[in-house]
């Protein structure tokens, strides 16, 4: 049914190492759910059979940052929690990406008050922002697809010097 149906005899394809690595990376994004508040419930729904994030190769939610590729920050980040989020992000091996899920994470959302960081881009490099409060599961899947497009363009040597 898949590519193997096209195989006839000893066929071969030509490509570059960069493209193969980028293709492999984008097809197996392992998310680390940084579930701080209610958006995390919606992230669970994304993993459920109805929406089924595994269709995009991103179903393996890793709760250890050392095994994850993309951190999905799902919830309101307070100034006290920001130190924890940043420390966990620093523990992820490169290459790594960040999805800011929901209004609170992206901009502070309805929590326009002194203890809430008004957008996690003040201390994290965010790749994709997801709108919604909380976002629909479709919206997060869209974010994963957009991130895959971004990962597809990366080259392996871009991350050579990174930790």
């Amino acid at each position: 049914m898949g590519l193997e149906a096209l195989l006839r005899g000893e066929d071969f394809i030509t490509t570059t190492i960069d493209e193969v690595i980028a293709w492999a990376r984008k097809s197996s994004l392992w998310p680390m759910p940084m579930g701080i508040s209610c958006c995390a419930i919606e992230f669970i729904a994304v993993n459920d059979p109805k929406y089924d994030l595994s269709r995009f190769g991103a179903e393996v939610a890793r709760f250890s940052p050392r095994q994850a590729d993309v951190m999905i920050v799902a919830g309101t980040v307070t100034y006290k929690m920001a130190h924890v989020v940043r420390r966990i992000y620093d523990q992820m091996p490169s290459p790594k990406w960040v999805i800011a899920m929901g209004a609170c994470t992206s901009s502070g959302g309805m929590y326009r008050s002194y203890p809430v960081v008004q957008g996690i881009d003040q201390f994290l490099p965010v790749d994709i922002y997801v709108a919604g409060c909380p976002p629909r599961p479709d919206n997060l899947i869209n974010a994963i697809i957009e991130l895959q497009k971004k990962v597809e363009k990366t080259r392996a040597r871009d991350f050579q010097d990174k930790k």
């Binding site: 920001a82 008050s113 002194y114 201390f123 010097d161």
Partner: peptide, 19 residues
């Protein structure tokens, strides 16, 4: 007398370690 959004510098953001 404390403003809703706080005063700048009341809370610290985490230090950013470059790769």
């Amino acid at each position: 007398d404390y403003p809703l959004m706080g005063n700048p510098g009341d809370f610290k953001l985490p230090p950013i370690i470059e790769d």
